[in-house]
């Protein structure tokens, strides 16, 4: 089952509109949502797959009607509630309170040491690369099928390539497996691959000619063709 976010190839959407001289954030609340998310991820209250999953769980109608950072608010709430640090009732009550007393200060506290740690993580990065002992199942040029995933929820295999044949175009490192990491069920790293799919294989007749799509996948998504 695919979720609302898995929209590669979906028909019926309008033109792409580029905003000239777009600011990084469009409002102060977008800044705060971004910063609060990075700070609470940095505290280890949830992981990036859980963050993504909280967006993917939004039903399709509100998903499509929400702005990008409105979806971040939803997953931030979902993950803070799951982490047990705040309840939905508390957030609801505080929202009502603030609406009755606009201009109320949200308060402030500082943690210099955590702040330095978070900034250095942002500068250095945190790779999901891991060592695995098992040899690769596939090599460059192998024909493969994006057979699917057993995940009931979060997966990184886009539905538009499921069941489609492609060719391994690049060998990547082994990375933490999202399907188990999202459940807190371990990292279970797997080899990754970049697979090239021809447009007519994915989209059928009438696809734009000479427009292959390259999709990055974990090994267990693939079977030999």
């Amino acid at each position: 089952m695919a979720r609302a976010h898995d929209i590669g190839g979906l028909k019926g959407l309008g033109p792409v509109e580029i905003e000239r001289d777009e600011p990084v954030f469009h409002s102060e609340w977008e800044q705060r949502v971004f910063g609060i998310t990075m700070a609470t991820l940095g505290k280890g209250l949830y992981n990036v797959e859980q963050f993504r999953s909280g967006i993917e769980e939004i039903p399709i109608v509100p998903y499509m009607e929400s702005s990008y950072y409105e979806r971040w608010i939803v997953t931030l709430e979902t993950n803070l509630i799951r982490a047990g640090v705040v309840s939905e009732d508390e957030i609801d009550a505080r929202t009502v309170e603030l609406s009755r007393h606009p201009g109320t200060d949200v308060g402030r506290r500082e943690e210099a040491e955590f702040c330095e740690m978070l900034l250095s993580v942002i500068q250095a990065g945190v790779s999901p690369e891991r060592d695995v002992e098992a040899p690769r199942r596939f090599e460059s040029g192998d024909r493969v099928i994006a057979a699917g995933t057993t995940a009931a929820g979060h997966t990184r295999l886009p539905r538009y390539v499921r069941g489609k044949q492609g060719v391994v175009a690049r060998l990547d490192k082994a990375f933490v497996y999202p399907e188990t990491n999202v459940e807190g069920a371990g990292e279970n790293p797997e080899w990754c691959y970049c697979v090239r799919f021809e447009a007519d294989e994915v989209w059928g007749d009438g696809a734009e000619a000479g427009a292959p799509v390259y999709v990055d996948v974990w090994e267990s998504y693939l079977e030999p063709a």
Binding site: G35, M38, R94, E97, S99, T104, G107, R108, F114
Partner: peptide, 21 residues
């Protein structure tokens, strides 16, 4: 409002570092 509600609760509970944000 919702963002302010979350921020004020996390500050109150000693979870959020405002300077990090």
């Amino acid at each position: 409002l919702r963002t302010q509600a979350i921020e004020s609760l996390l500050v109150e509970k000693g979870i959020l570092a405002s300077d990090a944000v």
